[in-house]
Design a protein around this nucleic acid. Sequence first.
DNA 1: GGTTTATTGTTGCACTATGCGACAATAATA
DNA 2: TATTATTGTCGCATAGTGCAACAATAAACC
Lengths: 242, 242
Amino acid sequence: MSEQNAPDVTLSAGKGFLPGLALDAVVFGFHEGQLKILLLTYESGTCALPGGFIRDREDLNQAARRMLFERTGLDEIYLEQFYTFGDLARFDPNPLRGIMVSKGFTPPDDHWLLQRFVTVGYYALVDFTKTVPKTDGLADSCSWFDFTDMPALMLDHRVIVGKALETLRTNLDHKLIGSNLLEETFTMADLQRLYETILGKSLNRSSFQRSMLGSGMLERIDKKYGGGAHKAPYVYRFLTKE
Amino acid sequence: MSEQNAPDVTLSAGKGFLPGLALDAVVFGFHEGQLKILLLTYESGTCALPGGFIRDREDLNQAARRMLFERTGLDEIYLEQFYTFGDLARFDPNPLRGIMVSKGFTPPDDHWLLQRFVTVGYYALVDFTKTVPKTDGLADSCSWFDFTDMPALMLDHRVIVGKALETLRTNLDHKLIGSNLLEETFTMADLQRLYETILGKSLNRSSFQRSMLGSGMLERIDKKYGGGAHKAPYVYRFLTKE
DNA sequence: GGTTTATTGTTGCACTATGCGACAATAATA
DNA sequence: TATTATTGTCGCATAGTGCAACAATAAACC
């Protein structure tokens, strides 16, 4: 749980929000051959997933979209709920208390944000180039990190990230994951690098090309010149935007 | 959400439980070629999924196991969380109020069970022959229904069942679903019937047999005599109990 | 301008997985 | 003893994929 939206939320005694329930999002991006993740950093030094709370009269999934819009400036994000984390062990008020104290606010022990929270995990796929990360009230910054070079995260957020990646991997073939992480047009090499990065293993080039072309998801558009001292690759676009 | 465990829970004002959060389980069984589902029936005529609440000092998944043990008498159940339902539209106190009234208890409008609940969905696979269904405080009975002949369900429970089946289908190959729904030993025809029932389509017999044997999951044990006027089939057992 | 270099698009071959049909084996029944 | 229904297995056609090879070619180099 990343109890953001402070100070308004911090001071509100939780009024207007569902009690004990939060949501956290693993926001994936892809840029220059690197898988990226959006994280909040705090003055106290810790890092966390962007998260939020659910309003009294708001769908759970809608709350996730609202929170993501606040963090990324993006509407119509590819978003999927993947798991709800409710272990008792994730109940530890200290990290958040430290953050609040470093912001000059010393909460009482029974502050609503310091109670036990169950959190619903979402993962989102966004176009890195179109995202405008924006911090929330408590955090110091909201920014991209290389997935392979992630800092330590608050509470069980690392576990949440792990499960998100796992889900992303198993969904890679069936859902239009590429079309949400890449820009409008891309080369076959771009697409393969994305797949290899997500799966964490290298793929055979000709097999990959054949299967992608055979799937009928791609439209070949142009040729891309200026890519280096070699044959110019075709540029593709996804046919099926869902 | 099936707010069971009454009357104790009903009258407790929700003390000792996480507020606004419930869990519901889609319990699958398989018997005589039929997929089964465990449902609660109420005096008021409605039916619902077995469900429960999470204690203050209890893991979410542990609460699901506890609730399932109470309903089925089974420990060590194959259990998987698949989705959390939090639409505002599922907030409708009337069905539950009706149930309580039919039990002779007229709750105030602000009764804790009549507030909005988010529910975490689980599906469970159990050995039909070993299950001893047991009702809870509010329900009239807890019993098996043919999956193909399910009554109308309370609130959005039908949607929950649908998503559970969907998850079950996609997991059918990768997880040891057969070993949890069948008895210790079975014939290849039994196993194929299970797969066909879950997938909702017929499979080619020889291909199915070849792929199952090729997977290395099965151990051939005996021959089963007395099955009819035909060649006796082999009896198999799953090698990998996880 | 000719040559080199790196990358791309494509094809052939081997291997595996699977749908489908066929056939012999066989346990109970008539 | 013959019949019947079901089972275990095999052969063939087809689709998908890993791997290697090869020609095409845009930029860089001399």
